[in-house]
Design a protein around this nucleic acid. Structure first.
Lengths: 137, 137
DNA sequence: TGTAATTCCTCTAGTGACTAGAGGTTCAAG
DNA sequence: CTTGAACCTCTAGTCACTAGAGGAATTACA
């Protein structure tokens, strides 16, 4: 049996966050000691690790919950898990592409300023000036 | 003179968001008609475009505000604008690197499932299994 | 000029995913 | 048996908006 602090140390999820997950129904309500403190079993630990991992992968809690209900699923439900993963992959690729565009533009902006801090900084101008952007956003 | 809706159409910033920016002090309180509706001038439009652009670049409102107060600044203050841009560039590069790791792992997960939806989907297993990740998070 | 559609106003509350703090109780080590 | 760490509940705050209620002003057209 683990205390909430044990669970936190094992998973890297902070104590208040574990309680938050319980409140949201992502973790089942655990057993309690006579003094009302939470005590978890190995299944709870695995479940929390699953949540941690999927959150790290960027899935919103609603999708994490959807995946959790698919545990032990069969047939079409399995495809659903697959779909969630693929959707998330597409989303991440999209985010990477957009960030790459922003990177390019910020690099341009910082370079615009290097060397000549005389009177008016080009950074401020470049930040305000959307027209000179390569990428559209 | 622009109405709040005009400003919204010109900048792509939604009407309630413009009011929100005003409340936060990012936009000065505009003139009002006899009927209490907001009327903006060209300076307000430029300022909102600046905010829009910097927000698109991922800067939090606090940094946007810092940049706005640097308008017309001189000397060391100009370097400060430059610093903000560089910090943001470093941050974006970091985010890209982390997303790239996640992309790799999600690609692995979706592939683990392709082809054999017989009994237990490998996606669910892979989501829960952090040990087989290449990247650490 | 009348009226109807659209836009605007303020205000409150909700979102996601936590985080922080107050004020108090229980547990574990020495 | 004491002390200090870890635990409890509850409320409120964060960020950057977004949604909705209920009502007033403006604009377009007949």
């Amino acid at each position: 049996m683990y205390s909430i602090g044990d669970l936190s140390r094992h998973t890297g999820v902070k104590v208040p966050t574990i309680r938050f997950y319980e409140e949201k129904g992502l973790l089942p309500k655990p057993a309690r000691t006579a003094g009302n403190q939470r005590r978890y079993d190995a299944a709870a630990l695995r479940r929390l690790q699953f949540i941690r991992h999927t959150r790290d992968l960027g899935l919103p809690l609603a999708e994490v919950e959807a995946l959790l209900t698919l545990e032990g699923a069969q047939g079409d439900d399995l495809n659903r898990a697959h779909d969630i993963a693929e959707r998330q992959l597409a989303d991440i690729r999209d985010r990477i592409a957009r960030l790459a565009r922003l990177e390019k533009e910020l690099a341009r902006i910082t370079k615009a300023c290097d060397g000549h801090h005389d009177h008016v900084c080009a950074v401020l101008h470049a930040f305000g000036d959307h027209d000179t952007c390569d990428g559209a956003h």
